[in-house]
Design a protein around this nucleic acid. Sequence first.
DNA 1: CTTGACCTTCCAGTCACTGGAAGCCTTATG
DNA 2: CATAAGGCTTCCAGTGACTGGAAGGTCAAG
Lengths: 129, 129
Amino acid sequence: MNISQAALATNVPAKTIRYYEEINLIAPDRGLNGYRSFSDTHIHQLTFLARARALGFSIEDCRSLLALWEDRHRASGDVRQIAQEHLTEIETKIADLSAMRDTLRHLVQTCAGDQRPDCPILNTLSSSD
Amino acid sequence: MNISQAALATNVPAKTIRYYEEINLIAPDRGLNGYRSFSDTHIHQLTFLARARALGFSIEDCRSLLALWEDRHRASGDVRQIAQEHLTEIETKIADLSAMRDTLRHLVQTCAGDQRPDCPILNTLSSSD
DNA sequence: CTTGACCTTCCAGTCACTGGAAGCCTTATG
DNA sequence: CATAAGGCTTCCAGTGACTGGAAGGTCAAG
């Protein structure tokens, strides 16, 4: 399987697959012509990576998860810890973004949004409160 | 006012202030010795930038907002549009992160997290559902 | 045999900083 | 007045996770 087939099969862009190889996340075989060759195992790995990335895991988290996935003797506690820490990060981000959203929503509602120059959004950004 | 005083007064790191100058976001004066010199206006601009950045506006948004702030004839509608678009982005991010959070929370709860190798988190990442 | 699609590598750019090195300037102390 | 510490300058490089593009090799069809 060539790289474009692999990209199609996994929804991971060819560019990204090459990047994953460059950072030693995956190691596809090579044909005599120098083309990358993807086996079912590689496709599984890419699918795994795509799912983990979609859940917001960092590349380094993905590297760990992939290693644990391939280690038949792993303890599920190791995986759980990575997931738990990531979950906490996500919850923090949501809290930060929610605070921003509340402030912005209030500002947008307060702002007339017309041709007049008076604007509560700018007032808030520049006031010394 | 030297750069470290400005940094202290605005909670914007000196490194970041230099970066803001480099990308033409602010234009502090220069003393005879080549040192940057910050007036009250520059301090206000930096404070404005810090607030806008804290609300998650991109640098380019900040550039626009700063220009609008300094334009006495601006229409508040221009500002409101930038804020509204940013608000929508934030809401999208929150929705994405919330979906991740729900999935992860479920996985973490399902995972025993002990010494056994069976792990629903990895199963989910690798299954073909 | 040529065309066009695919593959390769390498370089550069993204965003918003951040760290560090090399070297000039200022201030305090002996 | 010399020196040492600290602040200031510029420039270069790195972060994370790709993404775009150029230059050139390979392959299948007509």
